[in-house]
Design a protein around this nucleic acid. Structure first.
Length: 506
RNA sequence: GGCCCGUUCGUCUAGUGGACUAGGACGCCAGGUUUUCAUCCUGGAAACAGGGGUUCAAUGCCCCUACGGGCUACCA
């Protein structure tokens, strides 16, 4: 890599950042860090109508939660600011004039209504209206009108500035991921570069900013591929083609089933979050996030990194540092990736299993506090070590271990019917006696004593064990029964069995 | 409709002309472990979109078809 690597993530603040955007940011970040470069956050808010309060902050918070560190932005600073396009209006004005003077752009006075009518007319004739080298000769613009007319209109009317697409040129472009892309400029239309409200469109602002901010690689979603020719042509028109950035168009994230790409509007409709963090829109609408759903940021990032990229090895679990080391644009796939929620869950489970018991106990302890339960961290750590392999998320820890903190309020009816046979109460009473007489209350000792009682009296193992379990935890499933007894303690165990005998036999 | 991009198990993917009896992972199924459920272990089913070329040889290169995706706004 000869030049300094500088990449940007350039979302527009029209709402929360969705996971496709997070992945784009991630790939930019990984690429930058791999090559010792800078990761820049630029806010593209040239469409004031779609601006949503809080979106910019949401984007910044999301990247932070993900562990994606911003080198330059409004908050992080940097020498190439401002990093928000609405504050760069004057810059764009200067450059659009340059383009008009060089004959690469022109004023157009057609109203939206006029163009709409035209489009409809064409449609009736089964043709498609394109503002191009052919039609612009018949429309109201500075190429067809006299100087005087143009000047009058410029002062009295709304106008836009359009790019004058060169006629019949074969463009050969290169994409790092897709290779050569060929297109004839006759298929392109004279896109608007400057809107009547005095703001540039995305295309203009994007090229100017990327140039001024010395962006070396444009890594963005595939939805931008069709506008790549326009962008390349703009670089040429400005005379910047010699230090044009390299382009890499990422495959899109697709819906798990059905058609189309994953979009913000999918919200929670698909049965999983599409946003990193919880979002509340100014109008009150809310959408859930991965964070609040119990995902660890490193698991979330690991999962996302593999949607469209693969290291070429069989490794699947990557820390951020490992991702940076392994990442390369050449190994990014070309085709869209369907989102798979099951695999996301699996990743979180993997990360949860890797965490230490103490770390999980601290997280669990916070949840317990919210439920009004406070317990000492040593006890919680013991419980966590017993149940963590049964959970995929921190928020599943409670359902696996609630019985350590409160007595069961009901007993699984199916198990009672199947296992709580005639006379079981008497046998459980004997077990209570055995337990009560234990001086060494260790798991193994409890185990040996109870098993000995069952064997000596030739009792049904399943019946006794399940009856004990249901008495203590309310259901037939759970971790090792004797560890539960050990952790509950002698008195609590005895109480619970006695309560069960009384309640069930009634 | 037009333009552009893509197509390996259900899903994410490995594969860069001979190493392919096409590998891994998720999910699924079966067996084992377990007092139980979960975990865990072992095993299994499961794919090169179709058709033409090029080549001694094609998952891989070329062409066509089909299918999927994106774009086609004074949105980004």
């Amino acid at each position: 890599m000869k030049k300094n690597v500088r990449v940007r993530f350039a979302p527009s603040p029209t709402g929360p950042l969705h996971i496709g955007g997070v992945r784009t940011a991630l790939y930019n970040y990984l690429f930058a860090k791999k090559h010792g470069g800078k990761f820049i956050l630029r806010i593209e808010d040239t469409d004031r109508n779609r601006f949503v309060e809080g979106a910019k902050e949401y984007i910044e918070e999301s990247l932070e939660w993900c562990g994606i560190k911003i080198d330059e932005s409004t908050n992080a600073g940097g020498n190439f600011g401002p990093y928000i396009q609405s504050e760069r209006k004057d810059i764009y004005k200067k450059y659009i004039n340059e383009l008009i003077e060089s004959g690469n752009a022109y004023y157009a006075f057609d109203t939206s209504d006029e163009l709409d009518t035209l489009r409809k007319q064409y449609e009736l004739e089964k043709k498609v209206f394109v503002y191009n080298s052919e039609t612009r000769k018949r429309l109201k613009n500075s190429l067809t009108l006299s100087k005087e007319e143009v000047n009058t209109k410029l002062t009295n009317e709304n106008f836009v500035v359009r790019f004058k697409i060169p006629e019949n040129e074969q463009l050969i472009m290169n994409d790092v991921i897709r290779g050569e892309i060929l297109i004839n400029t006759n298929t392109l239309d004279d896109k608007i570069l400057f809107k009547s409200d005095g703001m540039p469109t995305y295309h203009l602002a994007n090229i100017i900013d990327d140039h001024l901010m010395e962006i070396s690689h444009v890594i963005r979603g595939e939805e931008w591929l069709p506008s790549m020719p326009l962008h390349v042509l703009l670089y040429k028109a400005f005379g910047w083609e010699n230090n044009m950035p390299e382009f890499a168009h990422l495959p899109l994230l697709l819906k798990p089933t059905g058609n189309g790409k994953l979009s913000k509007r999918d919200g929670d409709k698909l049965g999983f979050p599409v946003f990193p963090l919880f979002w509340k829109a100014p109008n009150g609408d809310t959408a859930s996030g991965y964070k609040e759903n119990g995902y660890f940021p490193d698991a979330f990032i690991n999962f996302l990194s593999l949607l469209g990229w693969n290291s070429g090895t069989e490794q699947e679990i990557f820390s951020m540092e490992e991702l940076i080391q392994a990442f390369s644009l050449e190994k990014v796939n070309k085709s869209g990736a369907r989102f798979d929620h099951d695999k996301a869950k699996w990743f979180n489970n993997q990360y949860l299993q890797k965490k230490s018991d103490l770390e999980l106990a601290n997280l669990f302890s916070e949840e317990l506090k919210e439920k009004g339960i406070s317990s000492n961290i040593g006890y919680i750590t013991e419980i966590v070590s017993l149940i963590k392999e049964r959970a995929g998320f921190v928020n599943e820890l409670w359902s696996q271990s609630f019985f350590f903190f409160e007595k069961p309020t009901e007993y699984d009816k199916k198990i009672i019917k199947k296992r709580w046979k005639e006379g079981i109460g008497e046998k459980l009473k004997n077990i209570v006696l055995i337990i009560d007489n234990l001086s060494n209350f260790s798991r193994d000792n409890i185990h040996d004593s109870v098993i000995k009682y069952i064997e000596d009296n030739e009792l049904n193992m399943g019946q006794i064990m399940n009856s004990m379990r249901v008495s203590l935890v309310g259901s037939a499933s759970g971790p090792d029964l004797f560890r539960i007894i050990e952790l509950l303690g002698k008195q609590e165990t005895i109480d619970r069995i006695n309560i069960a005998i009384e309640k069930v036999n009634k």
